[in-house]
Design a protein around this nucleic acid. Structure first.
Length: 271
DNA sequence: GTTTGCACCTGAAGGC
DNA sequence: TGCCTTCAGGTGCAAA
């Protein structure tokens, strides 16, 4: 599923072809994804020059010289296809430049595309409420301690809350908690300072490792029909129910449900 | 204010 | 083979 590392590699991949290019054509193949496409999207983007790309949490940002930024979210199943050979029935938004065609393909349509004035991005509602970037200087054990103070909600669910940390999803929260040795059901407010001191670098490590893995597959995206959005990563706990813990402590990975979704953890080394 | 539960959506996988 | 059910999960909203 597209989480922060996938969005990061997607943005980097798009930037190689889109940064500095002029958009010659924009086509919408349906009126909406999670929510309706902005009605002015086609008009604003047609003829605009892309001035840069960036990422905020799990959102990709395509900046233009029209002082408007395309903000896209890949949801559960979204990906960008570059110069796709054949149209896909789930290509909902297509952007063309003189040299390339970019199709936003999202079968489950949990994604979104918004148009936000570039100067107002920080105040845009989804961004204004967000916590610090996990790879930025804003995330730290002291900051987390304050954000989690008094929270009875399980740490797993706290970390999925974008107001506490922006950009973490189910997969990487499971992986980070395993690395830090924290039980996913432990109340957020009861996670100790030493555990938070382990958790912060664990979060950074799993994300950076995945970005590196994605970066290695990024080379393939230069080929025709390149697709951006997914890459294979070796997970330590995610999806490994019943398998041995990679800490070789004799533990067996268990799966539990939290907040309607699965958590994987080792009952031996996560306390 | 915090926490929980659900809807949204489609494809894959498993059971019968 | 075909049909049905379940699961996957990010986000936003309503309800408790």
């Amino acid at each position: 599923m597209p989480e922060l590392p996938e969005v990061e590699t997607t943005v980097r991949g798009l930037a190689r072809f889109l940064d500095g290019a002029r958009i010659t054509r924009v086509a919408l193949n349906r009126p909406d994804l999670r929510r309706p496409f902005p009605p002015e999207l086609v008009q604003v983007l047609t003829g605009a020059e892309v001035t840069g790309l960036s990422r905020r949490a799990k959102y990709g940002l395509i900046h233009t010289d029209r002082e408007q930024t395309i903000v896209f979210h890949l949801g559960m199943s979204g990906r960008w296809r570059i110069d796709p050979g054949e149209p896909d029935k789930h290509d909902h938004l297509v952007i063309e430049t003189a040299d390339h065609r970019f199709a936003l393909c999202d079968p489950r349509r949990f994604g979104s595309v918004d148009l936000v004035p570039t100067g107002e991005l920080d105040a845009w509602a989804p961004f204004a409420a967000m916590g610090p970037e996990p790879l930025g200087p804003g995330l730290g054990a002291a900051q987390l301690k304050v954000a989690l103070k008094g929270r009875s909600q399980a740490i797993k669910l706290c970390l999925l809350d974008q107001r506490i940390v922006a950009g973490l999803g189910n997969i990487y929260v499971c992986e980070a908690l395993w690395r830090a040795g924290i039980h996913p059901r432990k109340p957020g407010g009861k996670v100790t300072r030493p555990q938070l001191e382990r958790l912060v670098p664990a979060i950074r490590e799993v994300l950076e490792q995945s970005i590196r893995d994605g970066g290695s597959t990024l080379r393939d995206f230069a080929q025709p029909d390149g697709e951006l959005g997914y890459f294979a990563t070796r997970f330590d706990v995610y999806g490994r129910e019943g398998e041995a813990c990679r800490h070789a402590d004799g533990g067996v990975i268990r799966r539990i449900a939290q907040g309607g979704r699965s958590s994987w953890f080792c009952p031996n080394c996560q306390r």
